[in-house]
Deep mutational scan, measured.
Amino acid sequence: MTYKLISNGKTLKGETTTEAVDAATAEKVFKQYANDNGVDGEWTYDDATKTFTVTE
């Protein structure tokens, strides 16, 4: 399945996607992506749209 990340960081804003077997796997990928880009904030997940959002 395709999962989307919306980043509302102070230094990184935008969207990216990943293919993953489940939401937990996608979350690990996205949290590593955010960490690699210096984004640390509040996370939410919408199962209906398969979208994670991180806001700093």
Rank of each mutant, 00 (worst) to 15 (best):
T44R: 08
E56H: 08
V21W: 12
T53G: 02
N37L: 13
K28R: 11
V21A: 12
A24V: 11
F30Q: 00
K31I: 06
E42W: 12
D40T: 14
D36A: 12
G9A: 13
Y45I: 00
E42M: 11
M1N: 14
A24P: 08
N37F: 11
T11C: 14
A23P: 09
E42I: 14
V21L: 12
V29E: 06
L5Q: 02
T55Y: 10
T2G: 04
E15I: 13
M1F: 14
N35G: 09
E19C: 14
G14K: 12
A24K: 10
F30N: 00
G41Q: 03
E56T: 09
T49R: 05
T55F: 10
K28I: 11
D36R: 10
T25E: 14
F52E: 01
M1G: 12
T51W: 01
G9I: 14
T25H: 12
L5W: 04
F30W: 01
K10A: 12
T2Q: 09
T2H: 07
K28Q: 11
A23R: 12
L5M: 06
F30K: 00
T16P: 04
V54Y: 04
F30H: 01
K4N: 05
G14H: 14
F52M: 01
E19V: 15
T49H: 05
S7D: 04
T11A: 11
E56N: 07
K10H: 13
N35I: 15
K10R: 12
A48F: 10
A48I: 11
D47M: 07
E15N: 07
G14C: 14
F52D: 00
E15P: 09
K4H: 13
T11H: 12
D22R: 01
E15S: 10
E27V: 04
K28Y: 09
G41A: 03
D22W: 02
D22L: 03
A23C: 12
T25F: 07
E19W: 15
L5F: 08
K50G: 05
K50W: 05
A23K: 13
F52T: 01
T16K: 11
K50L: 10
T51K: 02
I6E: 05
A48Q: 10
V39A: 04
E42Q: 11
A24E: 11
S7H: 14
K31H: 08
E27K: 08
K28H: 08
D40N: 13
L12V: 10
E27P: 01
N37R: 13
Y45C: 02
T49M: 06
T51R: 02
V54N: 01
D22I: 02
T16S: 10
E19P: 05
T25W: 07
Q32F: 05
T11S: 12
D22K: 02
F52N: 00
T53I: 09
K4S: 06
D47F: 07
E27A: 10
A34V: 08
D36K: 10
G9N: 09
K4L: 09
V29S: 05
S7Y: 15
N35P: 01
K13T: 11
K31W: 06
T2W: 10
K50Q: 10
D46M: 03
T53E: 05
S7A: 14
A24Y: 10
K10C: 14
N8F: 14
W43I: 03
V39S: 03
I6G: 02
E42V: 14
W43R: 00
E15W: 13
K4G: 03
D47Y: 07
E56R: 04
G14P: 10
